[in-house]
Design a protein around this nucleic acid. Structure first.
Lengths: 223, 223, 223, 223
DNA sequence: TATGAATGAGGGTTCATTCAT
DNA sequence: CATGAATGAACCCTCATTCAT
């Protein structure tokens, strides 16, 4: 047996393997035997380190959330940019996070599954995962509409924007069948495709919101 | 043993019960014992009538698709209306189908699950379920953009429009937790709420597409 | 496969095997695999026929109770006999039931275990198993003491009598080690030994209660 | 790591914790993890200090026996008292030991379990635990009956006496359900209740034995 | 045509024990 | 002397499927 390398001990390997298996199979379908196999751990390792399957799942969600936040560029929008640029950046980065592969993608899959069959993890997501990205989006949209971020209309527009991004994540299996050339073997989208989609969503959304901006005096002339 | 009543025999009851259970639980989680119980049929009835669980599932998808088409108002758009009216009608009806309860909703749930873990049914859906609604949407958008329905830009806009509707279906579990007052006990949305959402999506989309229409001159200054 | 003989089908075999195993091992130690093995049934048979281990256990208790009542001679005391004779008969039969082998012995073992680690079955026993024998004993003792069966003193004396019988059941393992000649290979006591013990308990108890009888006028002279 | 305090080291804490857990759960149900937890010791401590679970159990039985003998008042009967007084004292003290809580009670529970599923500890008990109390009881009864302690009749009467005490220990779970007011929250009986029961058992037994005493003439008329 | 009974593979979890440190 | 990590056998239960009738 080789000596343990820090950060690669059984518990961590379990966490990594579980993230993959849970993302692929969902909570209920995932087999702890699979997870242990992939983590090269004993079948009882999950129980020893996490108590039970569900606690492992929660730990995975939490870990993925933290890792995801660590590399979530759409959370760091340049404050001095114009709102249009901000929206463009946000959409580009949000789409990128969804359509590449990485912790955020896994977390996305887990969240999508939680919507279909909620577990205790959904509460965590509603409380910890959604608010940050929702907040950023509302800030940008509020600025665009000259409204406070809490305004109902801002909420509606944020939904419209996020949904246009998420659909490419949700329908990946269909795209894989109808447009396989757009998707890489590792199931990620090509950066060029992502950029193209981002551009469309940005244009569609910017114009979609133009008519909704409050007609205040300080809006630029011509609209 | 009572004699059989045509149209309400075991096979049909099985189909009806299975539709409900599959929609609620998904293919893998659904238990054939539950289905048989709900159909007041013997535990062996599924295997007897359909061979195995998956064949029953396929039969259910097919049946749901047929029933769904039978009452899908968004497929019958008034041909003489203006394209804007057509889009408004389409969105209102599509949202209605997604957010009420009925065969279409069940099929929607099944499709959403197929996106996460595809089975043989996904191919059926890609071939039979999606094209009709996609075709209608592309017709309307093509008309609005003065483009042929096959144009890539039309495809992108259709995605943008459909996604804005589908998000309210996908995030129902979140809405249930954050805005429970919007959702009825039977998990359907209130007609007024649906109408309100449809109005927003229509406005957002109509303006979102305005800038994209050909062959008009470049958009007016300011962009 | 031979055709089924009524009364010896899987469910019944399971019940019989479970009675033995539960009596030998107690509820928790008993393995359903052992039970199924002994019943020549599949490992899933318990779940199929009874739902789970505990329901099987409850069914066993109930069945044993019924069988036990079917051959419980101490419940049928000759009404015209003198109270002394009644007590003698009761003790002799009660001891016999405890120290031979049969449904009552198994039920006795189960009850003894329930006292140490109660399950839902204890409630059944308190409600259904104990009252009948307690009632008979109180009737006899009440007659002997010229008191109503509900009198606290009657209760105390019944406890004293029953305990003297039960100790030979409870300490069978010790007797097996210290006086092996008294116990048959099938773990039952010899009828002669039982008769001898019954005689002692009767004498001890009759005299034990003599001083406690109420000194009413209608007691026969000489006492 | 703090330095060891003599008399409170891991091994002793283990012994104390194990006594409690074994008494509560029995040998097989007791979990070494529980014992280690309660002893604030490592999960491997039992195997390290005692080899395995059963050796720990044996050590516990031995320790409990020693402690029990150290505070067993019924073993120290006043030699000059009348035999009736001696019996009264013995019963009162024996009942007290059984129905309070302490090392003797724990040992009692362990013995009761050994009767149901004997382990190696039963041999120890037969050899070391039972003889002393049996001897005292036989001495008193022998004196009352004017017989040698080894006489079979003495043995029978001792059984009758001890059983009347033990039943209140054995049926504690039933009493807890039918007469909860008699039992304290810590599962011990009230001293007043114990005294009352002791009085009854003494009277019942003294009279029960009267007729058996030799070499007096036949019991007076009436029987 | 239809069923109640039965099956077996496999799921998560428990727990005394072992091992490297 | 002592420990945290890890192990593997075993347990109860689930469930789609099969079989004899």
């Amino acid at each position: 047996m080789p000596s343990y390398q820090p950060g690669s001990d059984t518990r961590n390997r379990l966490l990594v393997a579980a993230a993959e298996v849970f993302a692929e199979q969902g909570f209920r379908h995932a087999r702890v035997s699979d997870i242990c196999l992939r983590a090269q751990a004993n079948i009882a390792a999950v129980n020893y380190h996490f108590g039970d399957k569900e606690s492992l799942y929660l730990a995975v969600v939490q870990k993925l959330d933290e890792e995801s936040k660590a590399d979530a560029p759409y959370m760091q929008i340049e404050p001095n940019a114009s709102p249009e640029e901000k929206l463009n950046t946000f959409i580009r980065e949000f789409l990128g996070v969804l359509l590449k592969t990485g912790p955020s993608t896994w977390l996305g899959k887990l969240m999508a599954r939680e919507m279909m069959e909620p577990t205790a993890a959904l509460d965590y997501m509603i409380e910890k995962v959604i608010p940050p990205v929702d907040g950023v989006a509302r800030g940008i949209v509020g600025e665009l509409l000259s409204m406070p971020p809490e305004a109902p209309l801002v909420q509606l527009c944020v939904s419209s924007i996020l949904s246009q991004c998420m659909i490419y994540f949700d329908t990946k299996e269909i795209a894989l069948r109808m447009r396989p050339e757009l998707i890489n073997p590792d199931r990620s989208y090509d950066p060029a495709t992502i950029a193209f989609l981002a551009e469309h969503v940005t244009q569609f959304s910017l114009h979609g919101m133009q008519s909704m901006a409050v007609p205040v005096a300080d809006m630029p002339a011509g609209k």
